[in-house]
Amino acid sequence: MDLDDQMRRYFGTADLATVPATAMAAGIEHARVDLGLERDRSRRFALWTLLFMLDAAPDLDVAFKDPADRDAARQLMELSERLTPDED
């Protein structure tokens, strides 16, 4: 699942800066519903990652039953923190 494809699916564009607030909220809700329904581990992880990037991801214990998936998500979170510039 390509990130640009996910953004186009849920928000109508790959440029999230152009998405109005109401459409952003609706897209996030749609993605959260799909995450809850998705059974494929890879697709679930991709959806969770998109939601994480939008600061809308559910807690790891809610999103992932498999400990390996939770560990992978934690690694992604840690990597993201390292790549995010400090705001002083």
Rank of each mutant, 00 (worst) to 15 (best):
M1K: 04
M1Q: 08
D2K: 12
L3Q: 09
D4S: 14
D4Q: 13
D5S: 12
Q6S: 07
Q6H: 11
M7P: 00
R8Y: 03
R8W: 01
R9W: 04
R9C: 04
Y10N: 04
Y10V: 00
F11M: 02
T13L: 10
T13H: 11
A14W: 03
D15Q: 14
D15T: 06
L16K: 10
L16E: 08
L16C: 09
T18M: 11
V19H: 12
V19F: 10
P20I: 04
P20F: 10
A21V: 10
A21D: 14
T22S: 14
T22P: 04
A23I: 00
M24E: 03
A25T: 13
A26R: 11
I28E: 13
I28Q: 13
H30E: 00
H30S: 11
A31L: 08
A31Q: 10
A31W: 07
A31H: 05
A31C: 11
A31R: 04
R32N: 06
R32E: 09
L35F: 02
G36L: 07
G36S: 07
L37Q: 08
L37I: 00
L37N: 08
L37G: 00
E38N: 02
E38S: 06
E38V: 08
R39K: 05
R39D: 03
R39M: 01
R39Q: 09
D40A: 13
D40W: 01
R41C: 07
S42K: 13
S42W: 08
S42G: 15
R44M: 03
A46H: 04
L47A: 02
L47H: 06
L47R: 03
T49Y: 05
T49R: 11
L50A: 06
L51P: 02
L51K: 05
F52H: 13
F52D: 06
F52C: 01
M53P: 00
M53E: 15
D55S: 11
A56C: 03
A57G: 08
A57R: 08
A57N: 09
P58L: 05
P58S: 08
P58H: 06
D59T: 02
D59P: 01
L60R: 10
V62C: 00
V62R: 12
V62L: 02
F64A: 02
F64I: 00
F64P: 01
F64S: 04
K65A: 12
D66N: 07
P67H: 02
A68Y: 03
D69R: 02
D69N: 04
R70Y: 01
A72T: 07
A72P: 06
A72W: 04
R74H: 12
Q75E: 14
Q75F: 07
L76P: 01
L76V: 12
M77I: 06
E78D: 14
E78S: 13
L79F: 12
L79C: 03
S80E: 11
S80T: 12
E81D: 13
E81T: 05
E81L: 15
E81G: 10
R82E: 14
L83Q: 13
L83R: 11
T84C: 11
P85Y: 15
P85L: 15
D86Y: 11
D86N: 09
E87H: 08
E87D: 10
E87K: 07
D88R: 14
